[in-house]
Amino acid sequence: MGTSLLETFLLVLTLYSLLATAGVSIYGIVARPSITKKIISLTILGDSLNVLAIFVGFRVFSVPPVLLEHDTNSAGLIEFSRTAVDPLPQALVLTAIVIGLAVNFFLIFLALQIYRLYGTLDSRKIRELRG
């Protein structure tokens, strides 16, 4: 079962806009001076790459990977595996979001500590202050 030209266009548009979001957020991490802005861009980068990972497991005309009939036989399970999306990227992204959250919170605490020590969050001024 292939996809029509319009379906392919919409899927490719989704894919490219996710990649462009990742590119924009990398610009934010590299080129913006404020450390807070760098953290915001880092969260956007993580979000876009997580959604990209789930997009890889997507297929058209599908159902979520949750089995609804519990006394199912082999025929029902084969039908389920033919219509459901890939659950593996979803499972990996699920934990990746929580880990990313904890790591970003740690970065927020580090930014607070930088502000306590240097009195600014502008990375150019911090560079002038300490070598």
Binding site: N50, V51, I54, F55, F58, S62, V63, P64, P65, V66, A84, V85, Q90, A91, V93, L94, I97, V98
Partner: peptide, 9 residues
């Protein structure tokens, strides 16, 4: 994208 678990988190 049919990812209700990921939506919830």
């Amino acid at each position: 994208l049919r990812a209700p678990d990921t939506v919830l988190v």
